[in-house]
């Protein structure tokens, strides 16, 4: 199988980028998208050209490193899958695919398909944690948590911080990411003491990083490889208001 690729090439952060076209030939439909990129890069290296820079790590859909927009869809055409979990059988033989980096002011392109996603780290540093005094590890099950709450908290904790929500959003909003991180701690008893402070600080960090604002279109939820629900954004909106009123 073969594919025509239009890939975004950009030498550096300040450089102008443009699309370059490549023919990927001799592909196996059971190759992953990243394996196909490896084949393309092998060819480029053999020709003495600069390979396409892209991020990848676990290649099993849990690290959130691989970040490519394929035909305008972050992580490609499949629901609930990261780019590394997209296989070439999802495409037609001979199809033209346009591959771009995440687009958002808060995620500047570093090189080709690699963006700087440290804005997410700044949001986490602002409050995405629970403060625990050091000492003995607590007894297991010393703090009972209902099955339903545990499951819900885990649904939010599934977020791998890949940034597809920001990439898909027309406003470059990070509210799905921030809401998931605010809520998975806010659902649990350990997260209660800092709950109000957490949501206020994380939202302030989100605003400062230059993300846009949610306009309730839910493209984020549609492309999220972990299928995080946009309902968490509603919960964050409520938590934020409650905490703001309490602080008065």
């Amino acid at each position: 199988m073969k594919l025509h690729l239009r890939v975004w090439r950009q030498k550096g952060r300040e450089a102008e980028g443009q699309f370059e076209t490549y023919e990927a030939k001799g592909l196996n439909p059971n190759m992953s998208f990243l394996e196909m990129m490896d084949v393309v890069n092998d060819e480029l290296t053999k020709e003495g050209k600069e390979p396409v820079a892209f991020e990848h790590d676990c290649r099993e859909g849990i690290c959130g490193s691989c970040a490519m927009v394929i035909n305008g869809e972050p992580h490609g055409p499949n629901k609930g899958a990261t780019t590394c979990q997209v296989y070439l059988r999802s495409f037609q033989d001979g199809e033209t695919l346009t591959v771009e980096p995440w687009r958002a002011r808060a995620f500047p392109v570093l090189k080709d398909l690699v963006t700087d996603r440290s804005a997410f780290d700044k949001v986490i540093q602002a409050g995405g944690f629970v403060s625990v005094n050091t000492g003995q590890a607590p007894d297991a099950n010393a703090m009972p948590i209902g099955k339903e709450d545990a499951e819900k908290a885990f649904d939010a904790a599934h977020c791998i911080g890949c940034g597809a929500c920001v990439a898909a959003c027309r406003n470059g909003s990070a509210m799905l990411f921030v809401a998931a991180k605010v809520s998975h701690l806010g659902m649990l008893p350990q997260g209660q003491p800092e709950r109000g402070e957490r949501v206020r600080k994380m939202v302030a960090a989100m605003d400062a990083a230059g993300f846009g604002n949610c306009s309730n279109q839910y493209a984020c939820e549609a492309v999220c490889p972990k299928e995080i629900s946009a309902d968490w954004i509603g919960r964050m909106n409520r938590d934020y208001a409650v905490s703001a009123v309490k602080k008065l």
Partner: peptide, 25 residues
């Protein structure tokens, strides 16, 4: 702010059905 946060749109628009974005929104 939303315009500023998304300085560059994608060269190819994703499918509306996939991105579940409505016309009215």
């Amino acid at each position: 702010e939303n315009r500023r946060a998304k300085p560059l749109q994608y060269a190819v628009a994703g499918r509306k059905s996939r991105l579940q974005v409505t016309w009215t929104s």
